[in-house]
Design a protein around this nucleic acid. Structure first.
Lengths: 106, 106
DNA sequence: TTTAGTACCTTGCAATGTATAATACAGTGT
DNA sequence: ACACTGTATTATACATTGCAAGGTACTAAA
């Protein structure tokens, strides 16, 4: 199991969202921060990292609403990692849940 | 929501397990590492931190099976924090789940 | 022309987990 | 006697990651 999972949940969220369809950074910031408390400065480094690891490809596209958007498209490699990550995450939270219940009542 | 939650799951596990009954460090290491992948060096610093923040009280007790054990007992303050933490964690994983599903299929 | 919204990126910092090892006691095997 | 294994605590150096804050820049509305 990925030991990074203790913190790497955001990475997985980004992977999952981009795996569904191509997205740009700001869009991801909006999507994710609507659900969980993150700052803008968190997502861009993740995008950079995931791109450097060849999980994403990027292209620029002009926008009428502001500066050009940088879109991220998932690669085959990225899709695999995303898939495995989702599975690991499910296992992880089940284990945590068991531990928390061992705390609670018995 | 506690922004620390992105990583602070182990802390909550320790809190929950001690809240159920008094435990010593090594016991917690065994309990937790049977479920999730951690190294021994992870739990003791957490115990120290939580004790410094007055979530735990400690006492020593001799053991026939080795050196004396340091037991941790949860305080009222710790119990509150544990309770809130559990609630926040449930909310958090529900939000993450929603995000992951927005990735998946739609 | 100033403000607000969109959009991207970078830097320094703090928190947290990892790896590794040192210390120490008790019981078992050689 | 000696070494090894299991129990038990603690400390240190290190890497990763998220946070806070700020900088750049384009568009549209006030």
């Amino acid at each position: 199991m990925n030991p990074q999972f203790n913190k790497g949940i955001l990475e997985l969220c980004v992977l999952a969202l981009v795996s569904r369809k191509e997205r740009y950074g700001y869009e991801l910031v909006e999507l994710i921060s609507s659900r969980i408390d993150i700052s803008e400065g968190t997502i861009y480094p993740i995008l950079k990292r995931l791109t450097e690891e060849d999980y994403f490809e990027t292209y620029l596209q002009e926008s009428k609403e502001g500066p050009p958007r940088k879109y991220y498209r998932i690669t085959a490699k990225g899709r695999r990692v995303c898939h495995d990550g989702m599975r690991d995450w499910q296992v992880f939270i089940r284990q945590v849940d068991t531990l928390l219940k061992e705390g609670e009542g018995k």
